[in-house]
Amino acid sequence: MQVPARFEYERANSVPHALALLERHGPESRVIAGGHSLIPMMKLRLARPEVLIDINGLAELSALGVEGDALLVGALVRHAELLADPEVGRYFPIFHDAERVIADPVVRNRGTVGGSLCQADPSEDLSAAFAAVRATALVQGPGGVREVPIRDFHRGPYETAVEPGELLTGLRVPIRPGAGSAYEKVERRAGDWPVAAAGSLLRLGDGVIAEAGIGLTAVGAEHFAAPEAEAYLVGRAPGAAAFAEAGRIAAAHCNPRADQRGPAAYKRHLAGELVRRVLTRAAARAGSPEGEE
């Protein structure tokens, strides 16, 4: 039987309370939300926090919906909620594409958006999706809320911009009317972590690409993004050749490592292939005749 080492447990009843508990218990405490990464690691004794601070009761972190010209996703929104929300699907089909291939329904019912991003696993699907749409992370500390562009949020594997004593409270994603987005993942089996995955957002104007966002995960892409490929696309007409070239550029700039999911050359190939595919699909969703669902 896998059993964790000894730990204490605190239940937060508000965000300020959670922040106070974080301050009181210091760096050996960990926030727990869905627990789908932290608890398995504790049972394997790879993680041994002295105190767990449970934020599951914080309703103020569960908001999900359009606020002004942005989509607001609370940190405690469960994967299943993001997947079920029709507004999310209308403005950002990338999230529904991604959520359909994240883990399984049991995990999605409990796991949270904020937990996924804060775990900062280098293979996290949502990290790539939020990078593609250039979200803004809302991080609250004793001094108030600060806004962190998502591409500054992830500092490296398992490392984020959330400082000790701070809490990710939510994400804001600007809505671009008419934009298309998509996500595609290669996995060894339903529910597995990605071998590689890519997401994209395309906004078209005057027959050319006005904005391109590309997210990549599991292939060692810095900040889960492909800025060189994005820069290549902006101002160009959408089309198969441009998308393939963007894929090549993205593949050239990522840094995949071999593991049991595949050799580095294969993952690099996938980065290019998947970027090409999600751009093609995003273009179709943005209304381009060059796209393909």
């Binding site: 290669v186 060894r188 071998v195 999911r261 595949g262 050799p263 050359a265 294969y266 190939h269």
Partner: peptide
């Protein structure tokens, strides 16, 4: 025959 193995096989280098 994982995706990696199938693709590598197509490149002439089965795992």
């Amino acid at each position: 025959l994982t995706p990696a193995n199938v693709w590598s096989t197509l490149q002439g280098e089965p795992l």
